[in-house]
């Protein structure tokens, strides 16, 4: 009879190509997301946030934390895009942090994951982890291709839900994180009634962000 949480993971690409305005916009976006979630009592009760950054390696910079205790992290952008390590860390986090329903315990809601990347993987092992995510479907994953140089194919191999955000201005990131907030609130409000094998219904994306069919 433990608490059922809605785990929300933000995987942020902080490789060198994100240096400057993009990474600052992501940081600001996460702060905004946090503020937005605090305005929804259901999100305050149920949503737990984690941030994983990836560059040369992936690091979970904020473990799964309830919204009211979440502290937006600092981030610096440098290095390569080790996408495989990001997916590996994500899978590890699922194993360690997310509770599944069993005969003896009540599980969490299916996790919600947002992956932001503006480039192509520079590692060679990412496909193995992408396949694990595809096969095991341990979460509702939304991959976000930022700018014009994101590797859509790699993101598509990770999840069916890929959205494109060509504009990487602060305003575009602000709008994107509003979309994330709305997605979390929608998901946490629909608990107990998710059909169709657990697929979620995302709110309409803001202008400039398109869901790739």
């Amino acid at each position: 009879m433990s608490l059922r949480r809605l785990p929300v993971y933000i995987l942020a690409d902080v490789s060198g190509s994100m240096r400057g305005t993009p990474v600052e916009s992501v940081k600001a976006g996460i702060r905004q997301l946090h503020r937005d979630l605090l305005t929804g009592p259901q999100a305050v009760e149920s949503a737990y946030l984690s941030v994983i950054t990836f560059a040369d390696v992936a690091i979970q910079v904020v473990p799964l934390t309830e919204v009211s205790n979440f502290i937006p992290p600092e981030m610096d952008a440098t290095g390569q895009t080790n996408y495989g390590d990001a997916l590996r860390v994500l899978l590890e986090c699922f194993e360690m942090e997310v509770v599944r329903t069993t005969a003896d315990q009540k599980g969490d809601w299916k996790p919600l994951v947002f992956i932001l990347s503006d480039g192509a993987p520079t590692d060679t092992g990412w496909a193995e982890y992408a396949a694990q995510l595809r096969n095991r479907r341990p979460a509702n994953i939304i991959a976000v291709a930022c700018g014009d140089h994101a590797d859509l194919a790699a993101l598509r191999e990770t999840t069916d839900t890929v959205i494109q955000m060509r504009d990487m201005s602060p305003d575009a990131f602000r709008a994107f994180f509003k979309f994330v907030s709305a997605s979390v609130k929608t998901t946490s409000a629909k608990v107990g009634s998710v059909g169709d094998g657990g697929a979620i219904t995302l709110p309409p994306p803001p202008p400039g962000i398109t869901i790739i069919p």
Binding site: V191, G197, G198
Partner: peptide, 13 residues
């Protein structure tokens, strides 16, 4: 019996 590993998921209505 419960249908899935995740809370709130119902596969048939």
């Amino acid at each position: 019996a419960r249908e899935t590993a995740w809370a709130g998921e119902v596969t048939c209505f």
